[in-house]
Design a protein around this nucleic acid. Structure first.
Lengths: 132, 132
DNA sequence: AGCTAACATGATACTGATTTCAATGTAATT
DNA sequence: AATTACATTGAAATCAGTATCATGTTAGCT
């Protein structure tokens, strides 16, 4: 984690290292939950530090902001273009990697103008919820 | 507007009637702007009334909430399933009507699980911005 | 190693958006 | 007209996020 931070031009402070580790572990997490997780490891951490760091990490392209209808802003490690699968039952979020171009191409069959980006959230029933 | 409200089981108060009219006229509008518009017609209207009414109107399926990354929640008249085209340059939002099933079918070629809904925001360059 | 500038952190105050609540107003019903 | 059910208002509370600033830490220089 420290090396990763340095590679992206950021000082590897204990807070940043823990923030990165927790986001990696959680997959997708909001500031409130991240704050709780980080405090388990570094109890004196301030909420302001969480906010400041997620922003600088987004700025440095190490994290991406994730918007899901009706939820708090979430953060994830930047893994390149993908869409999100959101279980209708349990709410868990999964990444689904696909080529941004495939989506642009699909919508281009309907829309004449030049499309630059498509963001999509797919609501589905996950395997876990399906069988129970 | 009054009849529409009654049809949806809501009392046709002056505030609700004006709110509906303004949303219809604007197409897509956030609470702050809606508040300003409504106050032009009914100057004593309270912000709390706007919030409560947009929520009950969403509840009654007369309105839909619209989420665009990095913007305030917007409201529009429920017009059935569609996606939003957002101009990368000027930010204007346009509706694009397509069959929800077409999108579900498209993503089903990639994803095995049962998909129930796809929400998509399409960033593009609108005709106006394209030619200038 | 010690010095210093640059940066990061923690505590707290603040902002803007939204919700809650108690009081008041309005409309339909008996 | 009185009763009841909702709606609206304005103020205060809450909540997410932002800004400020004094203090702490680090990296680079001597």
């Amino acid at each position: 984690m420290s090396q990763l931070l340095k590679d992206y031009g950021l000082k590897a402070t204990p807070q940043r290292t823990v923030i990165l580790r927790e986001i990696t572990e959680a997959g997708h997490i909001n500031v409130e939950d991240l704050y709780e997780k980080v405090k388990e490891k570094l109890p004196t951490t301030s909420l302001a530090t969480i906010y400041k760091n997620v922003h600088s990490l987004v700025e440095s392209n190490l994290l991406t902001e994730l918007f899901i209808e009706g939820r708090k802003t979430m953060y994830e490690i930047d893994k390149g273009y993908h869409v999100h699968l959101i279980c209708w039952e349990c709410g868990k979020v999964k990444d689904f990697f696909m080529d941004s171009e495939d989506l642009i191409e699909f919508f281009s069959t309907y829309i004449d103008n030049k499309i630059t980006l498509v963001t999509a959230n797919i609501y589905y029933i996950c395997n876990n919820c399906f069988q129970s």
